[in-house]
Amino acid sequence: MANQADAAKTDPLSGMAHSEAHYFNSYNHHGIHEEMLKDEVRTKSYRDSIYQNGHLFKDKVVLDVGCGTSILSMFAVKAGAKHVIGVDMSTIIEKAREIVAANGMSDKITLLQGKMEEVVLPFDKVDIIISEWMGYFLLYESMLDTVLYARDKYLVKDGLIFPDKATIFMAGIEDGEYKEEKIGFWDNVWGFDYSPLKATAMTEPLVDTVDIKAVVTDPSPVLTLDLYTCTVADLAFNRPFNLKVRRSDFVHAVIAWFDIEFAACHKPIRFSTGPHTKYTHWKQTVFYLKDVLTVEEGESITGTLDTRPSDKNHRDLDIKIDYQLETEDMHRQVSGKAQYKMC
């Protein structure tokens, strides 16, 4: 499934050693910012949704939640905003200040380092919130709760949020070869049986690029978050899915991805992180199933996706997937429950 070669080309972190990732995969280092800025689907969607809507941004006060290197803040200034406030907890904000100065926007952008809950904004209310808050699987290490806090505290009535809609999708994939490589690897390690690590490997969702050819079912939208109305409680959810089988094949895993919509735009702008479209640094998230499902066209895989922050560590996600193959063929009937943890 996974198109490794492509991923390596486009993802600067993919070839890195574990400890390197440990060192650099922190928001205080620049590698992650380079990676995010180079993600064209992401950055251009934000740029277009802001630039194409100068009429919405003109003379408005804008809040950029988790501003990072301040690229979105600068887009907003260029689109005509009266003032932009960028807030970020990371020390990257110091670099952001230099960048804003280098682009002559220091009088238009106020950058604040700290927690959203603690910083004091130079305005009581803002007209627009912009934020790139999405994590892997939409919600893993996401900043959505911070955005919702900012919305409730600072956004004027009828204020706008960019983006304002996020939808999680699922699908089933044929992934025999790669599952064998990822999971079966542990069966024979330098001549030794390492199968005890298989169980752990099965509980770790894999963030990777999935080839669209591997997708066996229709995508099924599982959860839509409307950023104007949703609450932090909505980020723990249990939702049904129904994956309609498109071709007779085997299903080794289900995958999840998300779409993002800027519905406030004059002409709505939307991007997807699915397997059917251009690469993004979010890739897709793969959940291997214990069973291999033998599926026929027209049948369905039904079940529920249950996701909530872990009790023990709020930054981790506990994910449960219940699944069942809806078939009249008794010999192929199968159902199961799987538990995963993103940490």
Binding site: F24, H30, G31, R47, F75, I99
Partner: peptide
Amino acid sequence: VYGFDFSPMIPGGLLN
């Protein structure tokens, strides 16, 4: 970077 000058990030990649 998208028409902006991000040079304060140099050298600010992985090698700094």
